[in-house]
Amino acid sequence: MKKGWIAYPYVVWLVIFIFVPLLLIVFYSVTKTTDEGIVFTLEYFKRFFEPIYIMVLLRSLYLALISTIICLLLGYPLAMILASKEFRHKRVLLLLVVIPMWMNFLLRTYAWLTLLEKNGVINTFISFIGLPKMELLYNQGAVVLGMVYNFLPFMVLPIYSVLIKIDKSIIEAAEDLGANSRTVFRKVIFPLSLPGVVSGITMVYMPAVTTFVISRLLGGGQFTLIGNLIEQQFLYTGEWGFGSALSLLMMILILFSMAIMSKYEKESEGGGLF
């Protein structure tokens, strides 16, 4: 590379804003300030394995898993509709999928509050037609709904981008060889779309595991997720050490699952988003 110097500004950027903060996090997570000064400790990591925190982790993983599955079940058919040639209004539909992403994430989630509140739009309508009001907010369902709503485009778009690249003549070839539309999907379209599915799962699951805004707003603080826990350490309890340890563990968890995903992706061959 002759023009290696072009990369220098980026390297400086990476060092200042990623590498140094990362080192700080590691530093905070393994040290504590005592009377004798700063000493090495692993107590924050040990603390994480207390049942209450393990529960938080499991709950995070579980809710993210449910949301990812729902996103996949909703997103795949939508991606197929978008990718199909026959569908006339696909541009409009694609726009509708993308438009929410142009708006602020917080605003979108607040919007759900006004819909789901005790005296919100939906309950007003329900009582208007004579049914009892329902508790729509501050439960797991609301948190999952928020995740699905916010992350669905990240499932649809990678699958769509893979589906649209599948050569039409490959599908015709399968039909020609005796496959009806179900067999074509099972044996050709779905296997070929796997890289997109893997990307979609990664792009939904990761942010869903770490989110803290959705669970705070729609879960009403009753459903502490790992993201909320980290937020609390830094903003409220001031335990930077524990917060850093949690962040590190989270990062390791994500790296680990990414590695598994990318290995799987390599086996299925093709180009997803990663």
């Binding site: 039909e175 296997p191 070929l192 093709g270």
Partner: peptide
Amino acid sequence: PYKRKLNTVFQRYALFPH
């Protein structure tokens, strides 16, 4: 097509890449 007793060799082969 899948019910017809004929088969096709496509212009760009259209082999199944997976």
